[in-house]
């Protein structure tokens, strides 16, 4: 079930997202070049890699926040024009401290000067498990509550593609696990691409994991854990895949390598 191999040529069928020949640079430094992978429509895909490999920059490029460098090609649902199809969720909750939770959930509509559907705001807050905090300001909420509101705001946007940049990494282990489950439940019908540096998070949540590893140059390796997410962290099969990922990341047991 688990196979770690070079991602084959991007699918010719219509994927949710296809990234071809991604080239990223930070100033004059080349971060990655010629990285290709695809994200299945309606599925949960993780981009896993160590810090500094360029995964966040890649996500920001897909989100349209960083101008892509030729020959990078990003195709969503068969088209390279997908401006209004993406919702973006970052590591910080990015809630506006002067707005209440309900107002923050409606931030997109407010920013576009569109009418706010209050009934829907409260329904989504309820689904995110923070219905009782609608009128609270971010400063009065816990980290978990704030990230729930951020998740509700992402949901409110009704975009088919959701890009997440380590959205749960600032939370404690238990809160993180609850929010992972909640995110999988709430974003079930969306195409999700999540960046993470935590192999366990990727294993719990993703159908497909693209492991980005710098080995001379950055390359993507596909790992597909067995079974549907969210997976049980105590499952022995998961541990085995975990080992495969650690090997793919270059973190194999010390016996096989020289001193770190």
């Amino acid at each position: 079930m688990t196979h770690a191999e070079q991602d084959p040529e991007p699918d010719t069928r219509q994927p949710g997202l296809a990234i071809r020949n991604a080239r990223l640079a930070w100033g004059d430094t080349m971060l990655m070049d010629g990285v290709s992978f695809s994200v299945r429509a309606g599925g949960w895909t993780c981009l896993l890699g160590e810090s500094g490999v360029g995964k966040s920059t890649l996500l920001r490029t897909i989100a349209g926040l960083v101008a892509p460098i030729a020959p990078t090609e990003i195709v969503a649902n068969g088209s390279s024009e997908f401006e209004n199809q993406i919702a973006y969720m970052a590591q910080q909750d990015l809630l506006f401290p002067w707005l209440t939770a309900a107002q923050n959930v409606a931030a997109g509509a407010r920013l576009r000067s569109e009418p706010v559907d209050d009934r829907r705001v409260h329904e989504i807050l309820d689904r995110a498990g923070v219905a009782g905090r609608a009128d609270a300001r971010p400063a009065e909420m816990s980290g978990g509550e704030r990230q729930r509101v951020a998740l509700a705001r992402t949901l409110m946007e009704e975009r088919p593609i959701v890009l997440m940049d380590e959205p749960f990494s600032a939370l404690d282990a238990i809160t993180r696990m609850r929010l992972q489950d909640l995110a999988i439940e709430l974003l079930a019908d969306r195409t999700v691409l999540m960046v993470t540096h935590d192999p366990f998070e990727a294993l719990r949540m993703a159908e497909k994991i693209h492991v980005l590893r710098r080995d001379g140059e950055v390359r993507a390796t596909l790992v597909e854990p067995a079974g549907p997410p969210p997976r049980d962290p105590t499952d022995p099969a998961l541990r085995e895949t975990h080992g495969a990922i650690m090997t793919a990341l270059g973190g194999a047991p010390a016996a096989n390598r020289g001193p770190a």
Partner: peptide, 26 residues
């Protein structure tokens, strides 16, 4: 906060909206 501006841009906010609804209150 650059993250706020990024978020607003992915939400399709105009430059004027980012100024009046984010940068001024912030």
């Amino acid at each position: 906060e650059p993250g706020w501006v990024d978020l607003a841009r992915t939400m399709g906010a105009s430059k004027a909206a980012i100024l009046s609804r984010i940068r001024i209150p912030a």
